[in-house]
Amino acid sequence: MNIFRLVADLMHLGSILILLLKMFTSRSCAGISFKTQALYLIVFVTRYLDLFTHFVSVYNTFMKIFFISSAGYILYMMRVPLKDTYNKHLDAFRWEFLLGGAGVLALVFTHKYTVIETLWTYSIFLEMMAILPQLLQLQRTGEAETITTHYLFALGAYRALYIVNWIYRYETEHHVDAISTMAGIVQTALYCDFFYVYFTRVLKGKRFKLP
């Protein structure tokens, strides 16, 4: 564990807490893509199957359980108590392509053809693209609540910091994983436009609005 990864994990955890805070305070899930949230649940479940086979640390176990359970809880919130505030028509991304595409990539690039290893690779590629339905929704509406942009910023910053962590690990441990690194770079690149508007508008106290 290094400082970059610790801060990244805390940003990831923080992003989820911000999203829950948005839902609780506004009693609304407007502006949030259900598809992206559902993809994250699939990502966490397929990646953390090793909860049952491989103990890393109390920290690691706690975070895995938190990510899976909070993702499930967010879906429940969007489907049950906040159902009326969800706009299906804005959440129009064809996510079948992401589910299928990640499957093809996992079968091609997995390190080993075992169930756990292939599902781990699947989760990496699915996470790489999971934000796309959310970004499409943002593009369609052209604007977002400030709290939603803080959520997205924390989520993007988490993967960006993981890149710094991988560089650090390469330097100190000579450890490198091509799959997570390449996917992580693509995932972070998807946030570029968002980061630009976030830095130039939201952090200056203005509303998030696409040009």
Binding site: D50, V56, K64, H111, Y162, D177
Partner: peptide
């Protein structure tokens, strides 16, 4: 080892 090192990440 190589693979365990990857899997310690979240």
């Amino acid at each position: 080892e190589e693979e365990d090192a990857v899997k310690d990440e979240l």
